[in-house]
Simulated assay, not measured.
Amino acid sequence: MNWDAVQRVWLLSAAALVLLHTGTYLVGRRAGRYNVVDVVWGIGFVVVAGVAMIAGDGSVLRRVVLFALVAIWGSRLSWYLARRTAGRGEDPRYSVLLDRHGRSPGVVITRIFLTQAVAQWVISLPIQVSAVAGATRGPAWWVFGAGVIVWSVGFLFETVGDRQLARFRADPGNRGRIMDGGLWAWTRHPNYFGDCCVWWGVWLIAASAWPGVLTVFAPVIMSYVLIRGTGARLLELTMRSRPGYTEYQSRTAYFFPRPPRLSAKEHNSPNSDKTSH
């Protein structure tokens, strides 16, 4: 592996993220809200994948495939978040953070924009390292193929889950109700589960050539954030006080999908099958 190429990709990726978040900070400052940083979460990875594809000297096929997959995922996610946040005020997470630490430019930049830029750089290391790794050979093609399949499953869950939720929220008749249909009947967080699969798929593709396997810490970190950090766990804390959510929790998997269990009401119904096994 060419260490000069590694350093080139690392430095150019970092520089691209700094430029992206500098521009995003200026947009957020002008708009009076800093949740615009969420919109560039997906785009940031697309930028890194583009830099890695151009500046890397590894397998052309793997660079192109990773860029294509990341571009599809990241562009869709950023477009979805842009539409969801349009016309809304500041995200409560950032309001609480800024109320606690102040609203000076230094606080905003370091605690919101720099934090996200560093997170993107670290999580994207499989993409960066893969861009300077050699060709995939022999049995490693199975790992490459498995990565594409896992990514596809994740993209399907994330895309369909977001679409189902958006359609549910758009119906005024669903106001105050819990979304428990479609993929949301199999897992309480299909979008987070899908995101997790996307990053394990990316890592598997990178791991199809040495030393991509060493970047396994990236999807591990991402999985922790989605499952136990600011993802599913935090959302559960905000949702548990809503009517019906406890019952929804009792019959629906927390993160990894499984068929829904019967609710207590359904289980006690005269038409339910109570045969023990």
Rank of each mutant, 00 (worst) to 15 (best):
P270M: 05
S59A: 14
K274A: 14
G102D: 08
P259M: 05
V153T: 02
G161K: 01
L114D: 02
T238V: 15
A55Y: 01
W10N: 12
T159P: 06
M222Q: 11
T246F: 11
V143W: 03
A52H: 03
F144Y: 08
R63N: 11
R240V: 15
H189F: 05
S13T: 04
R258K: 12
R188L: 00
W186K: 00
G212M: 07
V64M: 14
L20S: 05
G154R: 01
W142H: 14
E158V: 00
W199R: 07
G87S: 10
V60E: 13
R242L: 12
T110D: 08
G134Y: 04
R177W: 05
L98H: 01
A264F: 11
A5P: 03
D4Y: 13
V39A: 03
A86F: 13
G212Q: 02
R137N: 12
Q249S: 12
A140I: 00
R93W: 10
Y254C: 09
V96W: 08
L66G: 09
D162N: 01
L226A: 03
R258A: 11
I221C: 14
R111A: 12
E266P: 07
A170E: 11
S75H: 10
E266R: 11
G201K: 08
V160D: 05
G74Y: 03
L214A: 09
W121M: 07
G154Q: 01
L17M: 09
R30I: 13
H277A: 15
P259D: 02
L81Y: 06
P243I: 10
A218W: 00
D38L: 11
A185I: 02
L17Q: 03
R33Y: 03
L165Q: 10
L165S: 07
Y245R: 05
D171A: 02
S223P: 04
I221P: 04
W142I: 15
L66I: 13
S104C: 06
T110E: 10
F256Y: 12
V150A: 10
R63D: 04
G74D: 03
I227T: 03
P257M: 02
T159H: 04
S59D: 14
P139Y: 05
L114F: 13
G50N: 12
L214Q: 02
R233C: 06
R100N: 11
H189W: 07
V202N: 02
A170H: 01
V198S: 05
E247T: 07
P211V: 05
W184R: 00
T230R: 06
W203C: 06
P211G: 07
W199H: 06
L204A: 04
R62Q: 12
D162Y: 00
P126Q: 06
A14D: 02
G231E: 09
V148I: 12
G28D: 10
D38E: 13
G134S: 12
A52R: 00
G89F: 03
L69W: 02
R258L: 06
R100A: 15
R30N: 12
S59G: 13
D38S: 06
Q7M: 15
A209T: 11
V70K: 00
S272I: 07
W199V: 10
F45C: 06
S223T: 15
R240Y: 10
G56N: 01
R228K: 15
A119D: 08
E90N: 07
V60L: 15
T159W: 03
S104Y: 00
N191Y: 04
R163L: 14
N271I: 15
R261I: 05
A117H: 00
A131Y: 02
C197S: 03
S241R: 15
C196V: 11
M222C: 11
V6C: 14
R177F: 04
D195L: 09
M222I: 14
